[in-house]
Design a binder for these strands. Sequence first.
DNA 1: AGCTAAGAACCATGTGACCC
DNA 2: GGGTCACATGGTTCTTAGCT
Length: 340
Amino acid sequence: MQVNTAQPNALLDTAIQLVGERTGLDLTAIEPGPGADLLIRLNKAPTPTAYRVEIKRYLNKQTVALLAARLAEDPTPTMLVTDYVNPQQADRLRRRNIPFIDTAGNTYVNEPPIYVFATGNKPDILPTAKPRVRLFQPTGLKLIFALLNQPGLEQKPYRQQAEVAGIALGGVAWIMGDLRDGGYLIEPTPKTRRLINKRALTDLWVENYPARLREKLILGRYTTTHDRWWQDTDIAAHRAYWGGEIAADRLTHYLKPQDVTLYADKVPATLLLENRLQKVPDGNVEIVKQFWHFDYPEKALQIVPPLLVYADLIATGDARNAELARMVYDEHVARHIRED
DNA sequence: AGCTAAGAACCATGTGACCC
DNA sequence: GGGTCACATGGTTCTTAGCT
């Protein structure tokens, strides 16, 4: 069946119809009114069940992970509606108990006593015309980080931006285009480009950084029997900077650091030797590759830029770090991203 | 049915030529 | 000097088929 994927409702209607035909599941779309979330009702359930509709095109692993994270915070019953869920993705969704329907007739609904899991149906036309959004790919994350930390950088030539962000020139135009499309950049003239919605952009950066960039930059995890070795270490002498809890401690003095994160261009061999750091898969000392190439005031404290400290604290998902993250944000990040 | 491996298909990115 | 684009490359993801 040809799907008019330009229309969200067409996608929803097609999915409801096809899933109904293939599995007998009786669903109805409900439009509650302007401004309210679209709902989908599961008919014939013992108690009427309504799901908030989450329409996502071109599903991938990250989309599923982000949706799962969101639902962990806000458990409003939500049904994913998409063009095609392949068998692997279907399994991921089922394991996370996220109900879905797609336009190929695949579905997962677990609303006892109703249980339907249908997978393996192929769409007639595979959704391959994915619009490439590079904003939150590694390259995009590097450039956005540079832009958020260096106010006014967006007005500089692409070549300079590429250099500061440590990315290829060719990538800058793509990312600037995505920023414009996403409503994060206005450009009356090239010389007056201006970043807007910085708060929202920062939130998205923090959300995407751990899985999409940080994960790829981990140089190794280490452990040592030396206690509080980091306290008197002149880390800058090893061409490295503290991140995470130690950096947060230096900014706020509110924490007894347990885990150690440090950023460096390459693994500092002498530091490992001096402190008997041994490489182990789950060590509490993590060395991450430095990915930015600009100066910032907090460098004097031998720490990474505060936005990165904040992101690392959030990434731990540790309740102990949540309040500290908020302090770092309020006192050291917020002023960088105020709208001017 | 579930697992695994191999190959295909797709995607992100850097490079450098070209144009304004 | 500055921006755009085609292309090559390397990596990731998906599909398929064979095996248990």
